[in-house]
Write a protein that binds this DNA or RNA. Structure first.
Lengths: 346, 346
DNA sequence: GCTTAAAATGTGTTCGAGCACATTATATTT
DNA sequence: AAATATAATGTGCTCGAACACATTTTAAGC
């Protein structure tokens, strides 16, 4: 249980701490006899170098840049900042310097420009949302070549050299949505609705759709029939009402993006029949409709936690030499009108 | 952005580091003029003492004892150990020593005995599950008098001097269960079933029942009628089948404890009609029935996270001088057969 | 003005690892 | 055997905060 120091070992082995140091770090210039003496002591005891002392000697300030879509353009990203601030606060006793940058999620040029700025900063690590597949891959490659550690969250990029990803299993996410709708309604028509956002997160939507369909395929229940639509924000109301007119058997809708409130808005005027609605993300508008009962369930993608963990693992990597997990898939939270209350704080 | 040291401040203020030190720690023996000089510098810059150096100087090992019911007696507590180990791992670079103790949840004597052992250890803090109201209150008082910090989790004790509690809002938890059942079934009979465990966690069950009922009262829907039963483990099958015979309108069951698998076991033989079932906690048996479809939703009380956070806040209090939050109410997670997959890891 | 007490201020050491540099021991060459 | 090269080992300083102790300054008393 005693904590041994290098000095202790030196004493026990009958050599100086310099020699012990050379043995520990394999710096050579140690005689056979001295090596044996030190190693025999090291075998006997459990020596762990004092991390605190190590850090003090090192005494470096690590800079980490975070790059994400501008929350002003899409409120989904707001909570990421909360998560980042949480991590910053947690480690403010250490030499960690975090800078946050935004890019316009509708503009690849903006993404590239932001990365130029970051490259000028020359940070130790970058945590980013690789919204644009192609551009992100190149950029990440560049960072890697400069010896800058890269972690990504929210979006996965298979072919990229960045190995540290934090997000959710989108396929499974779709299955969860399917299971939820099948819990609420026992038969009838179901619609998968992709609301086309200004920027393309097609992979997200596709994976969720696949998962959703796979659930019902496995269920092998012909009592459900599933239709899929891709709506544009500009004419949702018109399209949706016509879909409903065309499909009177429609009982449930699964919205694959955070824009389910736009569907809820329209559904709330449909008084004669209740259509179940499952959507994504705890946006203010979504929460409002969830509480009112127009949205039945929200699936929580937890962007706050994604950003928090991404940053935390980078920091712990630098400070404590911990390995960064190559992939973290967060639990997918199901939220209803009553449980939403418990998600406000931490 | 520069990191200032005491030496820097001394230089800027034109005094020695000893004087700066005295000002920072309010140790007195500082002249009016020197005080002013140093304070004016401190006002200008953002000085945060280097935590690493502080720790190295301090070089103390903090001992924290954790006391919880024996997981061998009730599997619910198993995951607490996982949470504790997570915290221990996270801070293993620091001087933190954690000891875990168990008590028999059916025996107050065992609880008292374990606390005697802990008191002999004389730790810096204790994290415990105050299962027995009266005994826990006394014990916590004793710890406080000895200057030992106490945090509690899972159970709340109003009248105790321990202010640091981590758990969930049980009333709200009951409301969530109610909302879930009302999502699945639109009308009919509902049963609240308390399965009497060997030890009394009556407060838990009562609060959940209150919450459950309050939801339906607010809903003001006479299409539901609610019955409440308290079952003993020994004769669940007999009692439950007689209840179902007596109440053919029964459509949903809310089990307030982690023993919903016992109900599911019986329900799986009822093939002619489907009864919705909502229960608590991710025990192996519960998960199995959730996947099979006999349990519709599980409410996750997250004992792992409760233990983890309890320990983490104690550690951060000692290491970083952070204040321990007087109360943390964790989010209440809803889990279905598809989302359970995403909860296995972290 | 001198002595002594008290207050104020400064100096130096410690914590443990890490590394530069100094010193000593051994081997090689002439 | 002496000179030089090379290998091996030891010493001492650094990181920044904290605190004990030494030194200086100021005030009080006669």
């Amino acid at each position: 249980m005693k904590k041994y120091t290098i000095k202790d070992i030196a004493k026990l082995a009958g050599v100086s701490k310099g020699t012990v140091d050379r043995v520990l770090h394999k710096r050579g210039k140690v005689s056979e006899t001295a090596l044996k003496k030190v190693n025999s002591i090291l075998d006997d005891i459990d020596f762990k170098p004092n991390f605190i002392a190590k850090q003090l000697k090192n005494n470096k300030i690590y800079t980490i840049c975070v790059l994400l879509p501008d929350p002003k353009k899409d409120a989904y990203w707001e909570s990421c900042i909360v998560g980042i601030n949480k991590a910053v606060l947690e480690f403010n006793a250490f030499g960690i310097h975090v800078e946050i940058y935004f890019f316009n999620p509708t503009s690849t040029a903006s993404f590239l420009k932001a990365n130029l700025t970051i490259q000028a900063v020359a940070p130790d690590a970058v945590l980013l949302v690789p919204l644009f597949f192609k551009e992100a891959s190149t950029i990440i490659e560049e960072y890697s070549n400069s010896g800058i550690t890269v972690s990504i969250f929210n979006n996965h990029i298979n072919s990229s050299p960045a190995k540290n990803f934090i997000g959710q299993d989108l396929f499974q996410s779709g299955r969860i949505g399917a299971k939820l709708l099948s819990s609420i309604i026992s038969k009838g028509g179901l619609a998968i609705i992709h609301i086309d956002e200004k920027y393309n997160n097609a992979i997200h939507m596709q994976e969720k759709e696949k998962g959703f369909k796979s659930y019902f395929q496995e269920l092998n229940a012909p009592k459900y029939n599933i239709i899929t639509y891709k709506l544009k924000h500009s004419n949702i109301e018109k399209t949706l009402t016509s879909i409903m007119a065309e499909h009177p058997e429609l009982k449930g809708i699964f919205v694959t993006t955070s824009k389910s409130y736009q569907v809820a808005e329209i559904l709330q005027n449909e008084h004669e029949k209740k259509i179940a609605l499952v959507g994504y993300d705890l946006l203010r508008e979504n929460i409002s409709f969830l509480k009112k009962g127009n949205i039945d369930f929200l699936i929580h993608q937890n962007p706050k936690q994604q950003a928090y963990l991404g940053l935390k693992h980078l920091i712990e990597h630098f400070l404590f030499d911990k390995e960064i997990p190559s992939q973290i898939l967060l639990p997918i939270n199901i939220i209803n009108s009553e449980s939403i209350k418990t998600y406000t704080g931490d």
